[in-house]
Design a protein around this nucleic acid. Sequence first.
DNA 1: CCGGGGATGGCAACTTCCTGCCGACATCGG
DNA 2: CCGATGTCGGCAGGAAGTTGCCATCCCCGG
Lengths: 212, 212
Amino acid sequence: MSLDHVPVLHGDEELYRRTAHLFATASEVTCAARDLNTWAATRPRRGDDRSVPTPRLRKLYRPEVLLHPSMAQHVRAASARGAAVRITRDDINETIIIDRRFAILAGDVVDGRRGYGVVTEPTVVQNVASLFDAAWRSATDLAVYDAQHTELFTLVPQVLELLASGCKDETAARALGLGVRTYRRRVAELMTALGAESRFQAGARARDLGLI
Amino acid sequence: MSLDHVPVLHGDEELYRRTAHLFATASEVTCAARDLNTWAATRPRRGDDRSVPTPRLRKLYRPEVLLHPSMAQHVRAASARGAAVRITRDDINETIIIDRRFAILAGDVVDGRRGYGVVTEPTVVQNVASLFDAAWRSATDLAVYDAQHTELFTLVPQVLELLASGCKDETAARALGLGVRTYRRRVAELMTALGAESRFQAGARARDLGLI
DNA sequence: CCGGGGATGGCAACTTCCTGCCGACATCGG
DNA sequence: CCGATGTCGGCAGGAAGTTGCCATCCCCGG
């Protein structure tokens, strides 16, 4: 695969500076993200620049963002502003696609700055866009996902607390006034949301996301 | 309990600046720590100031410092320089006691700076010192602890990797060319070292310590 | 060469978790 | 009031993890 002519920007600051003009005139912005440390582009626009119509926004996230209070709030706010938000369990990469003409792909962090590849080659962009579309189609709408997990979200902090405190399911369930079966259901949902296959992994990820 | 007249220093920088003179003339420095983010005092002395004899050093750590490569190296280096190092499973607080006359007690982190209470009141210092002594007596000498965990330390990175990857004990054991029984022994030792009662907790702590 | 100490790994008895199944109960639209 | 739908939680069977026990093997000092 040829990576020629793909300029790489280093760090968020440079990204914003160099790509602001793309967002300014965009009519469709599509993004996938596993956290909200990136993509300031997803912020509401400063000022009331009515010269350009609000672009159509599609945002694809992994479930764990909804476990993080502030991230969840951010996502819901975007949704309330009219962005289409979906949740996927796929292991997505951080990506922005603008008008199906530009793709910004997040890479690794070097020297504390994340690298961003800016792809303009039409064929590649189309390809990326179609991959995104596939993930988008198999993803769940935020409203639906929410409806299926109301109980979980309210209990997440307490469940995590109890898990982190090292107590047994039996004890934890009692502490929450739940049946063991239900408690385990919540834990299972939590693990799914975290994409964890074992409790060890869940603990690590939860800590990683700052949920504990 | 009266906390009058206990000056609190904020941040390491201030701590070093304000307490350097205590260390300079100390003949016995005793410290307890759960990590090495603090206590620059435990660094080898810069320069070769022979005007003061090297103080007697007693250092008490929790087992997890030995799981962290760079921390472990630091601790072993101190030990090699003649400091008495012991490992305890007690939930110790960060403390420095100098000549049984001053105690520096680490507190919470506020605004990114950790607070340090400098206690000079003889009664209190004696009390702290005797508490430390009790913990010290029940602790294990580094050499002994090491001898009992040689296998563990060499396997820690791989075991953590496997646990974090979410695979079952069966698979992980095979990957390491170990019997399941032995693999589980290592995991159990690891959990003990981390002070974790459940794998979830172990995952969280491991991530916390940057071991993953 | 022998005996002691330690690591190993199979076995087995538990404990803890994981989940499908199902009856009980609440909620809601008709 | 009724049926549809959804959550709850007990139960049961199975998977995964925890530990004591012990035969085996390796290394070492005598």
